[in-house]
Design a protein around this nucleic acid. Structure first.
Lengths: 116, 116
DNA sequence: CCCCTGCTTCGGCATATGTCTAAAGCATAG
DNA sequence: CTATGCTTTAGACATATGCCGAAGCAGGGG
């Protein structure tokens, strides 16, 4: 599209698939996983046979203190990406597939080259 | 799995699909998109017919100053999610589908319920 | 040549984030 | 009821992040 100098350089945005509120909502979800520790936590929980992991197993996989792991788990849980429950002495966590899937679906249309 | 108190509560992690370095690498990529403004920027660029957008069109979509928009574009560009080029007076940006696809593919296995 | 416009870079500030130590719940064992 | 162990909460600190205003760089037109 050729334009004269001093004028608007291109046509207005044709489509805006992500509204301001949707972007804020998804960004909050992404912030929850945008951390190496939380990413590994989510991966560990998701890959565990049975779909559930005890916190005592997670702490051993990191060079971090238990409170730090607990903090990261809370972030993931607040975001709705994982669920947790206390059973007796130990606390178990599992992933919430629907919420994780939202993230995957987000990038499908964005990976398409043009606006097609 | 029933265990005695004071001992290890569960079996060791069966599979660890995300290595420490892979998690750090992907977390850096996720940090780039874990922001409402950058998410909308990426969305605006991706949805623009022709696959390219001039910066002058992007600034109008936000209540932010030009330096701030430029900063966010640089973050996306440094992450390899978008490419940019100056053509005459204006600067144009486009998405890098392969890099965006990495994010989408990441959540596919994580959305599976169990370790299956 | 100078100026005007578009975009980026620089420096500073307010807030958010990740980590720790210390202390407090909670459940089981004796 | 007390003791022990697992987990979370609270408080504090260093660093990272997001924002702006001012200045710098690049290209085009008098």
């Amino acid at each position: 599209m050729t334009v004269a100098a001093g004028q608007q350089c291109c046509a207005p945005i044709a489509r805006e698939p992500l509204s301001e509120s949707a972007a804020a909502d998804l960004a909050a979800l992404l912030k929850a996983v945008a951390d190496p520790v939380r990413l590994r936590l989510l991966s560990l929980i998701a890959s565990h046979p049975g779909g559930e992991v005890c916190v005592c197993d997670l702490t051993g996989a990191f060079d971090l203190t238990a409170p730090t792991i607990s903090h990261h788990l809370k972030v993931l849980r607040t975001a709705g990406l994982i669920g947790g429950e206390r059973r007796g002495t130990w606390v178990y966590y599992w992933v919430v597939p629907a919420q994780v899937a939202r993230l995957g679906e987000l990038f499908i249309p964005l990976a398409q080259p043009a606006g097609a």
